[in-house]
């Protein structure tokens, strides 16, 4: 059984088509949605989090249909969700906030619930700030609080919208470690516009652009798309779809290389930029 199965999902907000017939499957492990801001990643993740219903197409989560009320509640009992703009009640401490979400997750027995709250607070390294008010925490710490609430109840499906946005490099590394651990034995679907995060974490990726899935496959398969299309030169090549000057003074060009240039192995970022530069190119594996 595929944990997440989205087929032909389409969603419009007024005249704007946020998603256009997107297909996506995800199984245990970390699946990443990569794409620029406004590409439709959040819309797709909200569908997977049962918060949004597609106008057309089907969504199956954990073998259930989120369009049916009884199934939807069953899915939500096994789901953890970190929204992009996760807000917090101003006066709550870390413990109080996670405890509040635990109540919304139907953990009514106080003792058991507090044990679970302590468990996720420890998992995310928040013990030392457990009694602090959330408004006094840094952005990175708040993001961790968001992850802690998503981990309540040890969910089978974890949906994380831009989990590393706004974090400094050290915090991002710690967060990657936590997400990587969370992805052991469960299905994690996350979004990012950072190719480094996707490369570091995801076994499978979907590149979303202008509401469509431009690529679905492994990071290696995406990187392979740019094989033979990256070269360095002393100047910006007119044949390049995109080019930039690197720290060592040479230009890294991505596009259709002219004859005689020195080709170099591509990175995931090269392939992503190539895909974004060539919107007609669409590969789904």
């Amino acid at each position: 059984m595929t944990t997440v199965s989205v087929h032909g999902a389409t969603k419009s907000f007024g005249r704007t088509r946020a998603l256009d017939s997107v297909d996506l499957d995800a199984d245990p492990g970390v699946t990443g949605l990569l794409g620029p801001n406004g590409a439709g990643k959040t819309t797709l993740l909200r569908m997977i989090a049962t918060v949004l219903v597609p106008d057309q197409g089907t969504v199956s989560l954990l073998g259930r249909d989120p369009a049916r009320p009884a199934d939807r509640t069953g899915i939500r009992r096994r789901l953890g969700y970190l929204p992009q703009d996760a807000g917090f009640h101003r006066g709550f401490t870390v413990f109080e906030f996670v405890d509040y979400v635990a109540i919304l997750k139907e953990m009514t027995d106080r003792r058991t619930r507090h044990d679970e709250v302590r468990r996720v607070i420890a998992l995310t390294g928040l013990e030392s700030v457990s009694a602090k008010r959330i408004r006094a925490l840094s952005g990175g710490m708040r993001r961790r609080v968001g992850l802690a609430q998503a981990l309540l109840g040890d969910p089978d499906l974890l949906v994380l919208d831009e989990p590393t946005v706004g974090l400094d490099p050290e915090q991002r590394l710690r967060f990657r470690e936590m997400i990587s651990q969370a992805g052991e034995g469960r299905t994690v679907v996350l979004s990012s516009h950072q190719t480094e995060d996707i490369t570091a974490l995801c076994g499978r990726i979907a590149v979303i652009h202008q509401g469509r899935a431009r690529f679905v496959g492994t990071p290696a398969e995406l990187t392979e798309q740019a094989a033979g299309r990256v070269w360095t030169d002393t100047q910006r090549s007119p044949d390049a779809l995109t080019a930039w000057r690197t720290g060592d003074g040479v230009y890294r060009n991505v596009g259709d290389p002219p004859a005689g240039v020195e080709l170099i192995p591509p990175t995931l970022e090269d392939a992503y930029l190539l895909l974004m530069s060539e919107p007609e190119l669409e590969v789904t594996r």
């Binding site: 989090a49 049962t50 918060v51 969700y81 996760a86 807000g87 101003r90 919304l104 997750k105 139907e106």
Partner: peptide, 14 residues
């Protein structure tokens, strides 16, 4: 006004 609305929407609470 409800900062946790999005989290609440995805929670199983009735």
């Amino acid at each position: 006004l409800d900062p946790t609305r999005e989290i609440g929407l995805a929670a199983p609470y009735s």
